[in-house]
Amino acid sequence: MQVPLCMALKIPVIEQCTVSNSFQGGDLMVEDLATYLNRNHDLIFPHRHNFYHFLLFTAGGGTHSIDFERFEVQPWQIYFMSPGQIHSWQFEGSIAGFVVNFNRDFFKNFLMRPEGIANFSFFSGLVKDGVFMIESRERAAVLNILTRLLENVADEDFARVSLLYLFHVLEKQRGASRGSETNVYNHTLLRNFLDLIERNYQTLRLPKDYAAMLYITPNHLNALSNEFLGISAGELIRNRIVLEAKRLLVIHDHAIADIGYALNFNDNSYFTKFFKKATGLTPDEFRRSMQLTHEQNG
């Protein structure tokens, strides 16, 4: 019997109101990073957010991880997270910077296109796009935007304009804008492919299924994935399944067999084989390795 994923197997989800201070409410929170961490010092365990989140370090050290990819903290590193991604941290020294959280609907009636935020490369949901260094020539502008945002957080229209301006500054730095209509079309296709994977990875495993929904050929979809991401369309789908398995495995109340069933593997041995081929570890070995890491960091 398959276990419905939405019913049984969940990672702790942190809501905006849980981490916001008492003076900020609504759909946006902007705060000095040191203050934020002091109030939320116990959130070092792996957890998800139900809101968008980004953080800029201006000082400090240690590590943080997003979807099990680990990063060394560096001054002027910024990271972005979309709802559903999982992260944890182990900071060291005097951490300084800014943290911004905003709910899914914060830009809903402000942008002409509701998918506008997701079109920024760092909100793609791919970890490799969401963590990067702010170049020296942009640091003064970024610092000014975030400082003014912190001072005027109660003015939501000002905050929306400021955040969009910041996102455009960062997107321009990353060279993510594409000049030709063909590349814009292909980038939109890729974004739609990623969205379809997010909604259907439990049940649709083959690139041809996604190609049909995008009205393109499987060969076109595979070429698109290889061009922009350096991996095949099939591997991208499999990586999303493995990622969800990892997210669920860090919660020790869930039996491995139930996780396999929740991810639409009717045979637990096939789930184990699938996971080991992708990661080099069995699900149980991965779970124990994550537990050991958490104990060492704790």
Rank of each mutant, 00 (worst) to 15 (best):
D195C: 07
L236W: 01
F54H: 04
N183F: 15
A257G: 05
N101S: 12
L229D: 01
L143P: 00
E31G: 09
F57D: 02
T63H: 02
T282L: 06
Q16R: 14
N101P: 10
V100R: 00
I11T: 13
L221M: 07
R287T: 10
A257C: 02
T217W: 05
R148L: 11
L194M: 14
N200R: 13
R178V: 10
L170T: 03
N200V: 02
F265D: 00
T147S: 12
L5Q: 06
K10Q: 11
N119P: 00
L229C: 03
R199G: 02
N103D: 13
H87D: 05
R48G: 05
F51E: 00
D284V: 15
T272F: 03
F45L: 08
D157E: 09
N119L: 14
F265K: 01
K172M: 03
Q296T: 13
Q2M: 12
D32L: 04
S162R: 06
R137W: 03
M29V: 15
Y270K: 14
Q90W: 09
F106Y: 12
M213V: 00
G62D: 05
L9K: 01
S124A: 09
S269E: 05
S269Q: 07
G280F: 07
S20W: 00
E135R: 15
D157Q: 10
T63K: 01
R287K: 08
D253K: 15
F45M: 09
Q16H: 15
N268G: 09
V30R: 00
K277F: 06
K108G: 00
L221E: 02
Q90I: 04
F275E: 01
Y201P: 02
L243V: 06
K246C: 04
L224V: 12
K246H: 06
F98L: 02
H220C: 08
T58K: 15
L43D: 08
I86L: 15
L249E: 01
R39V: 06
A154S: 13
R113A: 15
N40H: 12
K128D: 04
F23L: 11
L196H: 05
G93T: 11
K277W: 03
I66F: 14
R70P: 00
P75L: 13
L224R: 03
H53F: 11
A176Y: 14
L5A: 11
V13G: 01
Q77N: 05
I44L: 02
Y52H: 12
I11N: 02
Y52F: 09
N50R: 08
F228P: 07
N152G: 02
E115H: 12
D195V: 10
E115S: 13
W76P: 02
F120Y: 15
E235G: 10
P75W: 10
L28N: 08
F132C: 12
S82G: 04
G116F: 05
N152I: 11
M81T: 11
D32Q: 09
E244T: 13
G280D: 04
F45N: 11
R287V: 13
